[in-house]
């Protein structure tokens, strides 16, 4: 098995790139790709769940109290939630802020 020579990542190089242990997409946090961050204004939100339905990456989480929050570990900032929100309760801010 080859060893990683790139960066600090510890990786296993299996023949044919097979992943034998499930859950690699949970370990691999992709939120770092984001340049725009969605922010929910809970005072405007009516808990309709449109954002949760439309999020292509399962990054909107439904909380026990019925509110919604964003999982920034995986949200890539595509802005679909903000676009689909009927009350404009989600705004997109640049990550540089």
């Amino acid at each position: 098995m080859a060893k990683s020579t790139c960066g600090k990542d510890k990786m296993e190089f299996t023949i044919g790139a097979v992943i034998k242990d499930p859950g690699s997409t949970i370990k691999n946090k992709t939120g770092g790709w984001r340049s725009f961050r969605p922010i929910i204004d809970q005072t405007k939100c009516v808990k309709c769940g449109n954002c949760w339905v439309f999020c292509p990456d399962n990054s909107i989480k439904k909380n026990e109290d019925g509110t919604f929050s964003i999982d920034y570990d995986y949200c890539k900032g595509c802005g679909i939630c903000a676009n689909e929100c009927p009350l404009k309760a989600i705004r997109m801010e640049t990550e540089s802020k």
């Binding site: 790139c6 190089f13 992943i19």
Partner: peptide
């Protein structure tokens, strides 16, 4: 016995797979 075949390899690993 589920496994993943044909996953994405990022720039930090594609070359190693190709070298193998």
């Amino acid at each position: 016995n589920p496994i993943t075949m044909g996953p994405i390899a990022f720039p930090n690993s594609y070359m190693e797979f190709k070298k193998m």
